[in-house]
Design a protein around this nucleic acid. Structure first.
Lengths: 193, 193
DNA sequence: GCGGCATCTTGCCAATTGGCAAGAAATGAA
DNA sequence: TTCATTTCTTGCCAATTGGCAAGATGCCGC
């Protein structure tokens, strides 16, 4: 329940001074999200711009047949929200759920805009969050097109090994764009080598 | 060589007043890009935030084997640039090339930030461009995971039919995440129905 | 018009991935 | 612990997509 991590997070971006980081952090509200609880459910408007201090979360949508498709996995140090719903004030098509007990700090859309207005430097931070998310998604898209499922799995194992300890393989499989059956076979093949 | 379309574009977003739209447009420079010419080549830093007034462009990257992979198709009324390279001031991994003779208006990164500073309302516009691009990419990603190549092709035919008149099928195929061979077969199958 | 080059289609076969269902293993609740 | 549920693996077969190469078609410059 101590805001030091939040202050450090803003300051470490090198986009705001330490005193500004304190001012920003002061506007955030503490939040505890127990395992399996939803930060956002589809149909609602994303209104919590959450800095995740501890824990793991997953975002997922439903395809036309009603199957869950993981769209993202989030870990501590990341800002968690649904970009399109949050900024356009439209109903979210995605859900965000805690994979583990989570702790974080959030502000609402109105508060965020207020903060952008009061502390213009903070806008740079807002932009960097968007740009980072955009770049990651683009990299993933390229991987979907140019790499095999096995290569995508190995890359995920390397960059996000913790996920495998917190999410069932079925959720990870849909994130990789394959079925849990295929993922199981890929893991079997790799274990032989 | 008349800026009216540019002014209208900014004003129609409903994010800036008409007078502000004029102020913004005044900072943009006219640009003609002949067919096949590059707006951006990989290795360079994207430094033209271009409003495309007329024509079609394509963004593409190279995979590890050196094959071209189309990452986006752009048509008039869109803002064309490479998000990550432009905002992070890093070397672009992508190329942006004119599919047809193009006409547009651009500003540099420095000028854009200047404008954000002088006309804070304009920041809303900048954000909306990012959010829109993000949402589109996310939709495409979901389609890559949940839809068949045939469904993605039909969706593209419906939403972007003009592309097919300006880009060869091989470029469109890589955008859809398939080979030109597969795309040819899909078109053959659909023509039978 | 005539070559030359890029584009598109098609056949053959292989590799990848999926669908389904059964069973094994792990997990969680009472 | 015990039972029920979820998760994970595996076998069988089908569907999708790719790789390669040949041929057809179309387009551009000279």
């Amino acid at each position: 329940m101590n805001k030091e991590n939040l202050v450090k997070f803003f300051h470490n971006t090198n986009l705001v001074s330490l005193s500004t980081a304190h001012e920003i952090a002061d506007r955030f509200t503490h939040k505890i999200i127990p395992k399996n609880q939803f930060l956002l459910t589809e149909g609602k408007i994303s209104d919590e711009y959450l800095f995740l201090e501890k824990g793991y979360m997953r975002a997922f949508a439903h395809d036309l047949d009603g199957n869950e498709v993981s769209t993202n996995f989030c870990s501590s140090g990341q800002v968690v929200f649904e970009v399109s719903s949050f900024f356009n004030r439209t109903r979210s098509k995605e859900n965000i759920q805690a994979l583990t007990d989570c702790v974080g700090w959030y502000i609402s859309y109105a508060q965020l805009n207020d903060l952008f207005h009061t502390l213009p430097e903070f806008r740079e931070f807002g932009r960097s969050v968007l740009v980072k998310g955009f770049a990651e998604l683009k990299t993933r898209m390229l991987a979907m097109i140019t790499e095999t499922a096995e290569e995508r799995y190995e890359a995920l194992l390397k960059t996000n090994p913790e996920i495998f300890q917190h999410a069932p393989l079925k959720q990870i499989a849909s994130y990789l764009g394959i079925t849990d059956t295929s993922l199981s076979r890929i893991r079997k093949d790799l274990s032989k080598k």
